[in-house]
Nucleic acid binder design. Structure first.
Lengths: 189, 189
DNA sequence: ACGGTCATGTAAAGTGTTACATGATTAC
DNA sequence: GTAATCATGTAACACTTTACATGACCGT
């Protein structure tokens, strides 16, 4: 699934400008799909060319013109077809985990920095999710609820795991040579 | 961080052929980084050209020749520098969550199929992790332990969340119109 | 004999990221 | 006034994916 299809999906939900769509990627989609203007505007151009969306360059009272896109009947059908044809893949690309994997090649101070930074990002994303849910959670569709909750569950699990297991890579005292109990990973919340 | 750097990382751990490296991506890295031959072989060629790795086309007794690569001193330094310079990003690209987000545009049967497929993949990956840990877990470095445990924690959290919340998108009975208690997401294990 | 694994690559097409370029409107 | 936000795009580059192409070795 590419950015084009996602843009079509957003427009199936409500009319929007390219700028609005970017905002949507930054909020609702932020924890499972990314896209910048460099992908979104060309996508909108191609979708328009194919007749799946259209736009009226609206002039709004006293304000500058902007392109408000909306999905066509054909576009809506195309999106539903795409949903049925898309393989439900789930890919992670984590430089964070790469760094951790090679922990013994890094100074402990750098490791601590990396772990703290990741924890900070997780907290920030969780905060963002909370804010979104407080503001508009009561209007969420079941799908939005499911995905929002999924994001929260994964983020919390990540945070807890990092907090409880960072000693594995940060402790350089090597007191665990004989593989004592302290070496067991902790998964419990 | 690109495939080149990761190949260098694998070679810092032990000598390997392109084929071996692909296997490493499929096992140890599978849940946080992907690469195919189409990325790996060109990467090895460029790393060789830059003098960061080298290979002796070994002829092994009675067996076909193969290119066993090993890291040079310069390559090892370059990799350590890369580790310190790499931003610890963590990106997810999930068609699975996209589909779930647009659940109301899909037939329930398709949704069930998607959820079951994902659960199957999660179980398969968990099984793979278990096997790896049983076979070689006692030789894992702290970094490998941390990353392996992280993968397990996230996979288990995903599985539990899906099991406990799939009704949000699968129940079409609409009995929750008045936002009763049954609408609450369940996060507990 | 046959299927699976080992083993190495190339080429084209598709995709996304980044930097650049511009300028109006709004809130403080 | 000025900084942030709204708003739209282009072009070059980097990177990955997919399909293609080939063939030896090993176990049964």
């Amino acid at each position: 699934m590419d950015v084009k299809t996602l843009c079509l999906g957003v427009l199936c939900h409500c009319d929007a400008t390219g700028y609005d769509i970017k905002k949507h990627f930054e909020s609702a989609f932020s924890h499972f799909f990314l896209a910048g203007y460099g992908s979104i505007y060309p996508a909108l151009a191609e979708l328009t060319e194919r007749g799946l969306i259209c736009c009226d360059a609206e002039s709004r009272a006293g304000k500058r013109e902007r392109k408000l896109y909306r999905v066509t009947e054909e576009g809506r059908r195309a999106f539903e077809d795409a949903l049925c044809a898309t393989e439900p893949r789930h890919k992670v690309r984590s430089e964070f985990l790469v760094l951790l994997y090679f922990a013994q090649l890094m100074p402990t101070s750098r490791l601590t920095e990396v772990l703290d930074q990741r924890l900070g990002e997780i907290e920030a994303t969780l905060g963002q999710l909370d804010t979104m849910e407080r503001l508009e959670g009561d209007r969420w569709s079941p799908g939005e609820q499911f995905v929002g909750g999924f994001g929260r569950a994964i983020l919390e699990a990540s945070r807890n795991y990092i907090r409880q297991n960072r000693h594995l890579v940060e402790d350089t005292t090597d007191s665990g040579q004989t593989s004592g109990v302290s070496d067991l990973r902790v998964n419990a919340v």
